[in-house]
Design a protein around this nucleic acid. Structure first.
Length: 216
DNA sequence: ACTACGATTAAA
DNA sequence: TTAATCGTAGTC
């Protein structure tokens, strides 16, 4: 049974002020919200189920640690509520939501989504094939990781800097807020190099959601 | 110009 | 456990 057959989705776009808070607060607030990629003839919707906060200046795991400002990190220094997309390991994209306010380079990494709408299209971007009936393994692997969800949602460097209050890539809340969930708080993934920052509990996910990437 | 490495993934 | 794979950033 699809989730939108259980309750009606009535999506309302988040406004700029929603993003005007530090990355830890924003990351928790983003759980349970809906990421939407509206392309010419395709619509993709996924529920945000796992996030990580990158707190900028004092955070050794952040690209903007100690105020490091380069062409890549520039959008993090800009207005909140924009997308920061970068390529990792030369082959995967990662999607972040810029937090705080102009001049404060904080962001939230979107690590996992629960597919809601356009699953066949996600499978096409992800596996390069139209799947009539994806196996449960294929379904779970669609969006249960930061690189995977970008591939499934066709999020590339073209999306870097995109205004998330616009009409192409944006985030919504459900007006029929029937969603209740517990939040698990733990350490971030893939930041072993970050000394004391690797122990900061800035990864958050929806407890028991099957699309969460890795349970440590 | 040269070089090392990473907010990951898939396969072994 | 390890290879894949290259943009980014630090150094020369």
């Amino acid at each position: 049974m699809k989730i939108d057959s259980i309750y009606e989705l009535d999506l309302i776009k988040l406004e700029r002020s929603f993003y005007s808070k530090n990355a830890v607060r924003l990351s928790k607030d983003l759980l349970g919200k809906y990421l939407i990629h509206s392309m010419d003839d395709k619509l993709l919707i996924g529920k945000i189920v796992e996030v990580e906060a990158y707190m900028g200046f004092g955070d050794k795991a952040a690209h903007s640690y100690k105020g490091k400002r380069t062409a890549r990190t520039e959008v993090m220094y800009g207005e909140e509520g924009h997308a920061y997309v970068y390529i990792i390991y030369g082959l995967h994209h990662c999607l972040n939501v810029v937090a705080a306010k102009e001049g404060i380079a904080q962001a939230v990494l979107i690590r996992a989504l629960e597919p809601i709408k356009g699953i066949d299209i996600m499978a096409f971007y992800r596996y390069g094939d139209i799947l009539e009936e994806p196996t449960s393994r294929q379904l779970i692997n669609l969006t249960n990781g930061p690189g995977k969800l970008c591939k499934a949602f066709n999020i590339t460097k073209e999306c870097n800097g995109e205004d998330l209050t616009g009409n192409r890539l944006y985030i919504c809340r459900n007006k029929n807020q029937v969603d209740k969930f517990d939040i698990v708080e733990t350490t971030r993934v893939g930041v072993d190099y970050a000394e004391e920052a690797k122990y900061f509990p800035w990864r958050f996910y929806i407890k028991d959601n099957p699309y969460v990437s890795v349970i440590v």
